[in-house]
Design a protein around this nucleic acid. Structure first.
Lengths: 356, 356
DNA sequence: TCATTTATCGTGTACGTTAACGAAAAGCAA
DNA sequence: TTGCTTTTCGTTAACGTACACGATAAATGA
């Protein structure tokens, strides 16, 4: 933004316009008090009017304060490698931000362990960061700490899971229901009329799988709203167990129903695909989630037909930058940020991998 | 880079160590001459030893040199509004970069006029920019000017069209052939076996439509490589004419062939969709390119089934930042940057529009 | 009333770099 | 030697912001 002339405006322009010194403008901009309400308002008015944005080069040069941003997300495992992705986004952001006196504290925890989550949050609190990126898997514990964040006025950004009715700076993640809807749309286009469909759910993963339930809701809602008749079977399998879920799947496939399509509303589609491969079933339309390595592998082999991706590395990356923009450059941040629902097939996956 | 202590070293540290003033160090670092050979060597030696890297904040703050970046792309028209998109990316980048002494010269030309292209490039040369973003529609003319750029050591970045075997800093754009391949893949999934397919080409647009030809190549290559039998008709229509291409299309549709799918390998899918709408044909799978407003409109109405997008606003945005990073912050730049091939349907378009 | 506190504001220096300006040193001719 | 030019170098004022410090004015207390 420029004003009428071609010169960028700085605090000294504001000072001149407001008839005060740059010291006063600085106090107003940083809420450091010691300014009369009237002058404060006048300065703020002119800041608005001239659409002032600070020069972060000068700021970074001058300031000796390094802003600390904390990231709290689950660690990745062989059974759920999803969280590897955000880490690469974090690394990229961290690299870009070292220039700007910003330090990133990356903390992770076992996603099935409530205590681990609590401990990590305690640790983060002790480090007193300037901002927090959080994947709030356990709602009750999260809310507890959020109270503390609010008290200390530490901004926090959610990724992947959104909590309503709290004062988070932003949310970066998917619109779960709509992504299920998209999956159904693709399923319909690739299967015959009156198809037999199978939905493979994860059992024992109840606490934080609300967004997975919503994917399934979106999936089934599509067919009912479009008044398309389908035959759906839903099975629950412990996909996080380290042994392969062959027995459970065998039971389903032994019942002499030939499925036209299978929907796996979580990132463990590769487990199903592996089963299909051993069975030699490569003519079933399968839809899974997330570009993790094993999924990509089976997509390229043809045992997964579609993957729906939400660019998790971008989510973490954007979340960090949101905090930075809020804290340093004072840019306004949009609260709800749904990621694009990417449709990945064998033919376009290459480009998604290349764009980091 | 830090030295053994924890403090960043600057030119004043070098000056102290070399027993000279910072002015001298500066002259050495910038090859501004007026320094005795002996002292020059001593300074360079210490620069090496202390592993000095300049503070780009201070540099940018202090320097009164504004880097000029030129953008040369076709102008958009009602018949080809594609190039509106990059402009919004340019505007965003321009806004973000005004902070950093960077000025953006936006030059556009009539994409059907060789002379216009030449004139614009001449103009750009005269302005002697520090970097150039170019859509090299006319290969021969482009190569001519590229020689000049190379001679002047001006870095240039291509968008949307890539030229091989030249020394460009980077390329941001699609892999045209692969995007046609993706289109074919979608077409196959949504149409019956042995489908009747129609390809709607743009006539009289030959010189710079190599990437459109490559889309078609990719499209047809898919079916041959998969050994799928299709029946393809290709028609050429002047989609850039301001009158609607009804006559030509009528001729094709009067021949009593019922088409299952139509592929429009350019951004003018909306013209076809409009025809289908007046004819009341909404059961044909249609695949077009680019998220321009009229295409979005017909996608939502159901007369376009799939759109393939390449996020052109991101291309221009990234191209500009590549130049900035190269020139100012000295970051290494990756040369070839294919954009993701986005598959857009009615159900997920919302999220693409929201992400700028 | 005057002294003292308190609220409010301006000044000055620093951050690391650029570049103009002028000073000192060296070279050169007489 | 003197006077002059040329080479070589140091000093200093910016760039836009942060923040300590000191200054001023207003409010309070006696």
């Amino acid at each position: 933004m420029k004003n009428n002339t071609n010169k960028r405006i700085g605090i000294k322009d504001i000072a001149a316009r407001a008839g005060v010194s740059i010291g006063t403008v600085d106090r107003v901009l940083h809420n450091r008090g010691e300014v009369k309400e009237a002058t404060r308002n006048k300065v703020l008015e002119i800041v608005q009017e001239l659409d002032y944005t600070p020069n972060i080069f000068a700021k970074s040069l001058s300031s000796k304060h390094t802003t600390k941003l904390a990231i709290v997300i689950p660690d990745s495992s062989d059974n759920n490698p999803y969280w590897e992705k955000p880490v690469s986004g974090i690394k990229l952001a961290a690299e870009e931000l070292t220039h700007y006196n910003t330090e990133i504290l990356y903390e992770h925890f076992d996603a099935s362990d409530r205590n681990a989550f609590k401990n990590v949050l305690h640790k983060v609190c002790d480090q007193n960061p300037d901002g927090i990126v959080l994947n709030p898997v356990f709602k009750d514990i999260s809310l507890e700490f959020i109270q503390e964040f609010d008290k200390r006025a530490i901004p926090y950004v959610f990724i992947d899971i959104n909590l309503r009715e709290v004062n988070n700076l932003a949310y970066y993640g998917q619109d779960a229901e709509q992504s299920g809807w998209v999956a159904a749309r693709l399923m319909e286009a690739s299967t015959p009329k009156f198809p037999n469909l199978l939905i493979v759910k994860q059992s024992k993963w109840k606490v934080f799988s609300s967004h997975i339930e919503r994917r399934i809701e979106g999936f089934t809602r599509y067919f009912t709203e479009q008044q398309k008749v389908i035959n759906t079977t839903t099975i629950e399998i412990d996909l996080n167990a380290s042994n392969e879920p062959y027995e459970s799947l065998n039971k389903v496939f032994d019942q002499n129903i030939s499925y036209h399509g299978i929907f796996v509303p979580n990132s463990r589609g590769f487990k199903l695909a592996n089963f299909l491969k051993t069975k030699g079933l490569n003519n079933i339309i399968t839809i899974g989630y997330d570009l993790i390595d094993s999924n990509i592998d089976f997509l390229q082999q043809g045992y997964l037909t579609y993957l729906i991706s939400q660019k998790p590395e971008l989510q973490a990356y954007k979340a960090i930058w949101a905090l930075f923009d809020h804290l340093v450059t004072k840019k306004p941040i949009r609260k709800t940020n749904y990621s694009a629902i990417d449709i990945i097939i064998k033919e376009n996956i290459k480009y998604y991998l290349e764009n980091k």
